[in-house]
Design a protein around this nucleic acid. Sequence first.
DNA 1: TATGAATGAGGGTTCATTCAT
DNA 2: TATGAATGAACCCTCATTCAT
Lengths: 211, 211, 211, 211
Amino acid sequence: MKEDGRTERASRSREQKRAHILSTAIRVFGKKGFHQTSIADIVDEAGVARGTFYLYFESKSAVFLELLDQLLLHLRQNVVGVDVGAGARPIDEQLLDTVRRILRTAENNRSLATILFREAVGLDADVDRKLREFYGSIHLFLVGSFSEGERLGLTRPLDTEATASCILGSIKQVIEQHLVVDADAVFDIDRFASAIVSYNIRGLMPHTPSN
Amino acid sequence: MKEDGRTERASRSREQKRAHILSTAIRVFGKKGFHQTSIADIVDEAGVARGTFYLYFESKSAVFLELLDQLLLHLRQNVVGVDVGAGARPIDEQLLDTVRRILRTAENNRSLATILFREAVGLDADVDRKLREFYGSIHLFLVGSFSEGERLGLTRPLDTEATASCILGSIKQVIEQHLVVDADAVFDIDRFASAIVSYNIRGLMPHTPSN
Amino acid sequence: MKEDGRTERASRSREQKRAHILSTAIRVFGKKGFHQTSIADIVDEAGVARGTFYLYFESKSAVFLELLDQLLLHLRQNVVGVDVGAGARPIDEQLLDTVRRILRTAENNRSLATILFREAVGLDADVDRKLREFYGSIHLFLVGSFSEGERLGLTRPLDTEATASCILGSIKQVIEQHLVVDADAVFDIDRFASAIVSYNIRGLMPHTPSN
Amino acid sequence: MKEDGRTERASRSREQKRAHILSTAIRVFGKKGFHQTSIADIVDEAGVARGTFYLYFESKSAVFLELLDQLLLHLRQNVVGVDVGAGARPIDEQLLDTVRRILRTAENNRSLATILFREAVGLDADVDRKLREFYGSIHLFLVGSFSEGERLGLTRPLDTEATASCILGSIKQVIEQHLVVDADAVFDIDRFASAIVSYNIRGLMPHTPSN
DNA sequence: TATGAATGAGGGTTCATTCAT
DNA sequence: TATGAATGAACCCTCATTCAT
């Protein structure tokens, strides 16, 4: 039977509908919060039947976990180490780029970011673990970078763990305050990225730059 | 009249019972989280009847709001400006003391802090407003301090708003990471306070200290 | 505090309400069958709120298990061995009494019996196990009785297991056919008890009685 | 016209597919029970699409009704009267053959028999009526046989109705106990048929046979 | 005929809150 | 004031059945 065309089309449509429900869920979760959002809210907004939701997602928690994964994946891709090789671009420029990418990702996924910052913790064991792993891996990455930086003389000696928390917290707070709380204000990525890097760099570098 | 004594005693007892229920609620919320905690959990643990709870608190949200108030009050009391007058103690020492007090308050109210960091956001409109006000006032205070500091030549020119978020985020993250997430580890207040201040000061000061 | 009276009264009332819901459940299950009965049916008929049901019973299955226990207990109490001692009443009279008691128990709990015969099997693992245990213990008891009877020369040599099934089946079928299926007909206990015993005895006795 | 061939083939295939689904349903119902079996279980196991099921059967109940019909037909064919004419084989041999055939039918359709005994009653009105009719007709047949037997002096005077229930119950219980409950044990047809007939005959015959 | 995505009524259960005692 | 039984709205989820392709 030559059903490829049909199957393929169906498959495409399946993907689309799944994506449609997922993006609706993101929007609604972002607007009302996880606990305040009922399956009814999502399916009403998405214009599908109650049961349809369960064709694509196992449960309310499952869809949340999925959109969380999606955001964490985006963010992870933007956290990269700096290139310290000869001929590499200046470190502060590299850092600026990284922070910019992170902020841009957050801005492009404002609903997701809102969810991440407003709801994600304390939801359920799976979500908690996932978040701990995510922040844990970022934390670990920063700790490693500081050790390396110190070895290369790029940073002063630091309490690497505490400092990693400080930097992580800086970025989180900027996103939370200026993207999530002040949801209606424009989010000036360059401004905030510069401020973060400038603030952080000066706190890390062994010598004050001449400028 | 004997009435007075009775009333007073009753009144005292009323306050005590209220406090008893409140502290029980703090404990239970801290252990299980807000949504996972039912009124049944609280009254069972407190050893009072279901209805009694509603004699002292309007609702589940109301009790949460109250314990939130309690924590925010504690914290607010510890955020004080530095004394820049002649003969004042060195600024970094003053800052160190402030951060120490904040961390100590968090440690002394670990359940409350846990709730604050894990549950408070996105709960309901009242809680949200209260948190926004709290962080907003801290933020404002920091912005004001930076302006003043800049005027006095104590800090370099800064994006005051963004930098305020960075500092706030640093402290929040240290508490969240090392007090809430690593709940079983010892929380070395002096170490973390030093790290925070050291990290922040060097990022703020116009000139690198000589050491 | 002298709350004994209140507590006691409350306790009594609690028992009564529980019994009320249970008997309602028996009636409704008996009328509509387990699967066709919803919690809504029971609480509507009992005149209590949905949630009230769950104050007294853990689940729909739990209430079923409980009423099943109740009936099996009644029935078990009526299955007793015959007294073969000197001066004991004639065996057939004793058997007649036993069968009469069983049938009477079934009649007095017609709804329960209906449920037992119409619904109980295949419902869920717990129920299944309980029924298997019940019939198994009856079966075992009969097998033992036959062995003993054979030893005493009271019965002819038999395939004890198969014969136990036959007798058990006889009684079950009489109840099912004449109490459950012909629910509107009068259930003449004496007649059916006599028929069962007469039919069974003659199949078991080593010698045909002279008449 | 080639049409015929195609139609015939299609028709054959239609019948085959129907039979395939039906036998799958029997297997699945027998394994999991009616209520625990979903349409999804059946179509998955059968390897057809959900909608296809409804091309061949009206509903879940309808397919159950049909497989019930199938089993009842098998069983009905095996319940035949004894030949009392001159030169006929001994009555007990004839009865033994009948019981053997019944047990063999049950064994050959173990899934169906399991369904019959574990699920059939209380399912829905149609099934109930069908079962009542079936057992009613067997019952009627036995009652008639006893009347005839009494007239011919082959049986003692009996409460024909009650006794018919007893015999029916014996056979049912043996099947239920030893084929359905002890599903893993070997089902020794000859043994159980002998036991049933021996037990029943001696309970029915006016005189003890000389052996 | 065959498909399988879509439907939506209906299920059992929970729990914050009320209120008669 | 204290009690705890009672309430019932709201929740998440299932699944027999339908229907566009």
